[in-house]
Amino acid sequence: MQYAIIQITILDKENIVKYISLIRGFTKEPIGEIKDNALKGKAIIECQYSKKPKELEQVYKVIKELRDKGAKIRIVQKLFGKMEREIDIEIVENLIQRNIDTSEEVKRIIDSEVGE
């Protein structure tokens, strides 16, 4: 089964060393693997947010921290293997808010059904 995915790629490869500890804190991958992937233009962070919505909040924090350190990044959203598009951080924020709203709505519905 394919899921909706967010991928982060580092565009300014010459500064990858500045970002490795931050990336490693999220991915737990070896330093060499992170560096190799970044230098090859591969995604250094991937999140299956439709499967693990809470992980998207962690990815958002890493994106903000990378940007604070001056990283030039590319954020790509892949939708169930059918569509791929570059997105900005506001889309990530909207996805997080949608997850929160959906969770609250489900809780409200369950509470109302249990209260009957």
Rank of each mutant, 00 (worst) to 15 (best):
G32T: 10
G32F: 07
G32S: 13
G32L: 12
G32C: 06
E33D: 15
E33C: 04
E33A: 15
I34E: 11
K35L: 10
K35E: 14
D36N: 15
D36Y: 14
N37D: 14
A38I: 08
A38P: 07
A38Q: 08
A38Y: 07
L39E: 15
L39I: 14
L39K: 15
K40T: 03
K40P: 02
K40L: 14
G41V: 09
G41R: 10
K42G: 00
K42T: 00
K42F: 13
A43M: 01
A43N: 08
A43R: 03
I44D: 05
I44R: 06
I45P: 06
I45K: 07
I45V: 15
E46D: 07
C47I: 03
Q48V: 01
Q48I: 01
Q48S: 10
Y49R: 05
Y49K: 04
Y49C: 04
S50V: 09
S50K: 08
K52V: 03
P53A: 09
P53E: 09
P53I: 08
P53C: 09
K54M: 12
K54F: 11
E55P: 00
E55Y: 07
E55A: 14
E55L: 08
L56Q: 04
L56M: 06
L56R: 06
E57V: 10
Q58V: 12
Q58T: 13
Q58D: 14
Q58L: 14
Q58W: 08
V59D: 06
V59G: 04
V59C: 09
V59Y: 06
V59W: 04
Y60V: 00
Y60I: 00
Y60P: 00
K61Q: 11
K61F: 01
K61G: 01
V62D: 05
V62Y: 05
V62N: 06
V62C: 06
I63Q: 03
I63S: 03
K64T: 09
K64S: 10
K64P: 00
K64A: 09
K64V: 11
K64I: 11
E65L: 13
E65I: 01
E65A: 15
L66E: 02
L66I: 03
L66V: 03
L66N: 02
R67C: 09
R67G: 10
D68N: 13
D68C: 00
D68T: 03
D68P: 00
D68S: 12
K69E: 12
K69Y: 10
K69D: 02
K69P: 00
G70A: 08
G70R: 07
G70K: 10
A71Y: 07
K72D: 08
K72G: 01
K72N: 09
K72M: 08
I73G: 07
I73C: 07
I73A: 07
R74S: 11
R74M: 12
R74W: 00
R74G: 05
R74V: 00
R74N: 06
I75M: 12
V76D: 13
V76N: 10
Q77L: 13
Q77H: 13
Q77K: 15
Q77V: 01
K78E: 14
K78N: 11
K78P: 00
L79S: 06
L79T: 10
L79R: 09
L79G: 00
L79W: 09
F80N: 13
G81R: 04
K82H: 02
K82I: 07
K82N: 03
K82A: 05
K82L: 12
K82D: 01
